[in-house]
Simulated assay, not measured.
Amino acid sequence: MNRHINQAQHNETFLAFIENHSPDDYNDWKITVIFYIAVHYIQAFYLEHGITVDNHKQRAEVMQNRNGEPVSRLCFTAYQSLYWLSIDSRYTAQGCIATHRDQLVDNVEDAKDALIKVKEFVMNYFNS
């Protein structure tokens, strides 16, 4: 495995810590952590292909096979969903507004579902 897999697993441990110690709070941060777990899994995949990806835009382009190794449509769609959930949770300040907390709980679950798809794609590659 490579350093990005290690970082993804480290972030997963942090997510578990947040969820265990504050199950009803910090959902905006949980979504952000979930997104960055996915980022590291994708980075691991591309590092194995000798492809350096430096930013979110470039990663999306490479994932769509514009200039690199493609990922499955399911993986790309899940990653894009995580990207937008993360943007929404970080920049709309919904975590601070009580009326939006139920939506954030749903978004955390959606983010976890999307992460499973990204992680499965990458780990299936490494285990094949």
Rank of each mutant, 00 (worst) to 15 (best):
Y41P: 12
V105A: 09
S81I: 06
C96F: 15
I42T: 11
E19A: 07
I42C: 15
F76T: 05
T77M: 10
S89L: 10
M63W: 00
A114E: 00
N55D: 14
R66H: 07
H49R: 15
F45W: 00
H56R: 08
G50Y: 06
D24Q: 13
S86F: 06
A60N: 09
T52F: 10
R90Y: 09
W84F: 13
K112F: 00
G95N: 03
T77P: 01
Y46T: 03
Y26R: 05
Y41A: 10
G95K: 07
D88E: 15
N55L: 04
N55M: 04
R73T: 12
Q64I: 00
G68Q: 07
T52C: 08
A98G: 02
I31W: 06
Q43M: 14
I87E: 13
K30Q: 04
Y36T: 07
Y26F: 15
Q94C: 06
K30W: 02
H21D: 04
K57G: 05
H21K: 14
V53W: 00
K57D: 05
R59A: 11
I18K: 12
Y83C: 03
I97R: 14
Y26I: 01
Y26T: 00
V33D: 08
S72L: 11
D110I: 08
E19Q: 13
D25H: 14
C96W: 15
S22Q: 07
V108G: 02
E69W: 02
N27W: 08
Q80I: 07
Y41Q: 10
A16E: 10
A78V: 02
A93N: 13
F35M: 11
V108C: 05
V105C: 03
C96G: 15
H40T: 01
D110M: 12
V39K: 14
P70K: 05
N20K: 14
Y26S: 03
E19M: 09
P70H: 01
L104T: 00
G68N: 08
A60T: 11
E69G: 03
D110T: 09
R90G: 11
D28K: 11
R90V: 10
Y36R: 12
I87S: 08
K30Y: 03
D113L: 09
G50M: 08
S86I: 01
G68D: 02
A38W: 02
G50K: 11
N55A: 07
R73K: 13
S89P: 10
V71N: 05
N65P: 01
N20C: 03
L74S: 15
I37S: 05
L104E: 01
A44Q: 06
E69I: 04
P70C: 03
R73C: 05
R59C: 05
H49I: 01
A44V: 02
V53H: 01
V33N: 15
Y79C: 08
N27Q: 13
N65G: 09
V71K: 03
W84S: 09
I87L: 13
I97T: 09
F17H: 12
G95H: 04
Y26V: 01
V62L: 07
H21L: 10
F17V: 05
L47E: 15
I34F: 09
R66A: 02
K112G: 04
R101C: 03
L74M: 11
A44I: 02
V105W: 00
E61M: 10
A60W: 04
S86A: 14
C96A: 14
I51W: 08
Q80L: 06
S72C: 11
E69Y: 02
V62W: 02
G68S: 06
S89K: 12
